[in-house]
Design a protein around this nucleic acid. Structure first.
Lengths: 408, 408
DNA sequence: TTCCAGGGCGGAACCGGTTCCATGAAGTCG
DNA sequence: CGACTTCATGGAACCGGTTCCGCCCTGGAA
C-alpha cells in the first residue's frame, strides 16, 4: 500500500508534473467521478448501449465534452479483444492499378470504422516479415491481401491464429477472394485485335512483380495464346517480350518488336503503363497508331481514355472495395458468398486499335524477305524456347522468378 | 472470490472451450509459468533489457518459441503508453505525386518499427473527421500530414494533446515541415520557356485539391507571374486556365488555349498529369510539340521521361521519407533542425520544349491583332480580374474553393 | 568472517477501457 | 399489498503487457 502510494506520487511528478498540469490524459475514471456515476455507466454511454437513463446519459456526455475526454483506443481495444484495425498487404503500392485497389479498400474500411495499416511490399523478405508480424495477437482484426500470392506457410499461420484473410487479385483455396479472370482478359484483348484482322500480334509483359507479385502476367499470356490458337494463328515466340513493369522498359521492348524484319501489326501490353511505353516507342520510330500498329493495354487507368488507348477494363477501385466489404462481413461473422468472386472485364475500344493496313500483317508475313525469319523462329514449341531468354519464363515454371525469390 | 472463480470457468468454457483447446491466446503469464520465471523476466527478455542471465534468457526464448507466443501489441502499447503507430493524412492518395510521397513515408516508418495508418482525405468533412480522431489518446504516436493545409483549430488540438505533427508539402508555423518552393518551381518552369524565347506562355492549373488541398497551384502561379514580370513580359489573363486535376480536364483547357486567336507558343502545366493532357490536346489538334508548342510539366513522374516531357523535378518519395524521419526524431525527443526544410527543385529539359517557331510568339504578339487584346487584358491588377472567372481564385481568396468546402 | 554493493529476479500495481455480477429501486401482476 | 420482474447502476475483475519495488544471492573489500 505504501509503495503504491509512493509510486502514484512519483508518476504524478515524473509524468504529469512536468507541465505543471495534471490534465494530461483524462480517463474514464475521472469522467465517472466528475459525472457522479460509475465507470460502467460511462462506458455504456460511450458505446451507445441501452439501459442508461436519458438524464444520466446527458450528464455524462456533458462531462465528456467539458473535460475534452477521448477514450483510449488501446485500452478499449485490449479489453474488447480487438484493435479495430485491418492490415492491407500490397506490393508496389505506387503503381496506378495497385493504388486504386488500395484506395478502394481503405475507403470501405474507413466507413466501417476500421483503421487501415498499409504494409507495402517490394521484396520477398519484406513480404515474409510483414505476413509473419500479422499473426501476432491484437495486431489486426483481419487482413486484406492485394495482388500478391501468399506462401502456404503463412496461410496456415493465419488459420491457426484465426485471423480472417481476404484476397483481392490473387487466389488461394478456401479463402474469400475477389478476382478478375486474367486469362479471359488476355483473350479479350487478343480477340479484339484478331477481329480487326490482325494476325501478327505482339505481347509485352512484365516479370510478375519481380518475384513476389501475382500471376496475372502469366495468365494474361495464356489468354493471349488461347485466342491465337482459337483463331488458328500460329504462335510466334519472337513476338513476345518481357521486362520490368515500367513504361520505359516496355518502350524498349516495343522498339525491339517494331524493329523486327517482320514486325507485329498489333501489340497487346499487359498493363496500360506498359502500353503507354509501347505508344511512346511507336511515336519515336514514326510508326503510326493505329495505322501501322494497333495497341491494346490493360486496366483502363485514367490516362488510357485520354490517350485513346484501347484497353481491357477491370474495376480496380471496386475490387479493393469488395475485398474490404467481404472482410467486414467476415469480421461480423457473417457468411461470405461466393468464396470466389469474379468481377467483370470488358474491352474498351478506343482509337489505338484499328484494322491493319492493307498488305500488312498476314499478307506481308506470308511472303517476302521475312519468310526466312519466320521459318527460323517458327511456331513449333521446340523453337519457341530458343528465341530470347526473356520470354522463357512464361512457358516454363518461370525459373528466373523462383531464383529471385530464393535469393531473398 | 466465488464470483471470480465462476466467471473464470465461464470464460474458459465460453470463449476457449468452443474449440476444445485452450491454446487460443498464449499470454505472458503462461510463458512465465512454463519457463519457471516471473512475468517481469519474460518482459525483460522480450525487450532485450539488461540484467537477465544468459541461461535464463535462453530458457525463456525456448519456451516462447515452443508455445508460439506473440506478445499483444495492444497490451504492450497500453502499458507503455504508445501504440507504436503513426498516422498519415493525405489527400487523393491515388495521384501519382501523392502516392510517391506516401510510399516514401511508409517505407521509413516501417524501418523504424512503426505501423502506418493511412487516412485518405477527399472532402473537407473527411479531413476534419480524421484530424479530430487523431487527437484521441493512444490513437497514434505522431502524425505526418501530406500536401494538405491544417485548419488552425486542429493545430491547436494537436498541440494540446501533445501529439507530434510533421508536415510535408504544406506549411504551418512552428511545425517541422519539408517542402519544395512551389513559387520557385513555377518560376523555373516559366524562365526555362522564356530563355527559349517564348513570350506567350499559357498556364494550366488545378483547383487546389478541390477545397482541401494545398496551395501549390497558387504558388506555382505566382512563380509564373514573377518570371513573366522579371522578363518584362506583360501578363495576359487569357492564357490562364484552371480546372479539376485530371489530364482529361487539362486537355480541354489546353484546347481552349490553342484555339485562341493568338494562341500561346508554350504552356506550363502545374503537374505532369495535367501536362500529359496538354500534350494529348496538341496531338488531337495537330499542333506539333515542340515545333508549334512547348510544354512544361511539374513533378517528373515516371511517364514524364518516357514522353520526353520537360518538367520541374521535385523529390517526391524523398519528401515523404524526410517527413517520416523527422517525425521519428521528434518521437525520440531529439531536435529537429531546421524546422522548415526545403528540398531542391530542378528543371529537367526534355524534348517537349524548344525555341518557338520563327514569327511566332513575341514577334506576333508584339504587333498585329493581338495587340488590342494585350491591351484589354493587360497587366494591371484591375484588368486581371475581369478575365474569365476561372483564374480569379488564384488572385483573390479562392471563393469557389471555400464554397466547395462549405457544401461538404 | 562480516558487510556491502549490485545483479538477477518475482510479482504487485498499473495502463484505461469493457463486461459481468450484485444491488436497489421502480413497476407489474395476482 | 406482497412476490416477482425489469431497469438503471456501481464497481470489481479482467484484457496482457511494463515497470518498479524489494528480496535474495553472490562476490569483493575490510
Amino acid at each position: 500500500m505504501k509503495s503504491c502510494r509512493a509510486r502514484e506520487e512519483g508518476a504524478a511528478v515524473g509524468r504529469r508534473g512536468v507541465t505543471g498540469i495534471a490534465s494530461r490524459g483524462v480517463n474514464i475514471t475521472q469522467v465517472a467521478r466528475a459525472a457522479g456515476v460509475g465507470t460502467g455507466t460511462v462506458s455504456r454511454v460511450l458505446n451507445d448501449s441501452a439501459n442508461v437513463r436519458p438524464t444520466t446519459r446527458a450528464r455524462v456526455l456533458e462531462v465528456i465534452e467539458r473535460l475534452d475526454y477521448h477514450p483510449s483506443r488501446l485500452a478499449s481495444g485490449l479489453s474488447r479483444g480487438s484493435p479495430r484495425t485491418v492490415a492491407i498487404v500490397v506490393p508496389f503500392m505506387t503503381r496506378p492499378s495497385v493504388v486504386e485497389r488500395l484506395a478502394g479498400a481503405i475507403s470501405v474500411l474507413d466507413e466501417h470504422g476500421y483503421d487501415t495499416v498499409v504494409l507495402n511490399v517490394e521484396t520477398a523478405e519484406q513480404r515474409d516479415r510483414h505476413l509473419k508480424s500479422l499473426t501476432a495477437r491484437h495486431r489486426a482484426d483481419g487482413v486484406v491481401v492485394l495482388s500478391i500470392p501468399i506462401p502456404a506457410t503463412f496461410l496456415a499461420a493465419f488459420r491457426k491464429a484465426r485471423i480472417p484473410v481476404v484476397l483481392v487479385d490473387t487466389e488461394a483455396p478456401g479463402l474469400p477472394r475477389t478476382i478478375a479472370d486474367d486469362a479471359r482478359g488476355g483473350r479479350l484483348a487478343t480477340e479484339h485485335l484478331i477481329a480487326l484482322g490482325h494476325r501478327r500480334i505482339g505481347f509485352v509483359g512484365d516479370l510478375g512483380f519481380e518475384g513476389i507479385g501475382n500471376h496475372s502476367t502469366r495468365q494474361r499470356f495464356s489468354g493471349y495464346r488461347a485466342a491465337l490458337q482459337a483463331a488458328r494463328i500460329p504462335y510466334d515466340g519472337a513476338l513476345v517480350r518481357q521486362g520490368s513493369h515500367s513504361a520505359a522498359t516496355s518502350s524498349l521492348l516495343a522498339e525491339e518488336l517494331l524493329g523486327l524484319a517482320d514486325p507485329p501489326t498489333a501489340i497487346f501490353a499487359i498493363s496500360d503503363t506498359q502500353a503507354i511505353g509501347v505508344l511512346a516507342a511507336a511515336d519515336r520510330m514514326g510508326v503510326e497508331v493505329p495505322g501501322d500498329l494497333s495497341v491494346v493495354g490493360y486496366d483502363d487507368v485514367e490516362a488510357a481514355a485520354l490517350l485513346g488507348l484501347t484497353t481491357v477494363r477491370q474495376p480496380l477501385k471496386e475490387s479493393g472495395a469488395r475485398g474490404a466489404e467481404r472482410l467486414c462481413l467476415l469480421l461480423r461473422h457473417e457468411r461470405v458468398r461466393p468464396l470466389r468472386e469474379e468481377l467483370p472485364l470488358e474491352i474498351v475500344a478506343r482509337t489505338s486499335s484499328a484494322p491493319p493496313a492493307a498488305g500488312a500483317g498476314t499478307v506481308r508475313a506470308a511472303g517476302g524477305g521475312s519468310a526466312g525469319r519466320q521459318n527460323a523462329f517458327g511456331t513449333s514449341g521446340d523453337h519457341e524456347r530458343r528465341v530470347r531468354g526473356e520470354h522463357r519464363q512464361l512457358l516454363s515454371e518461370q525459373p528466373e522468378l523462383h531464383r529471385l525469390a530464393a535469393e531473398r
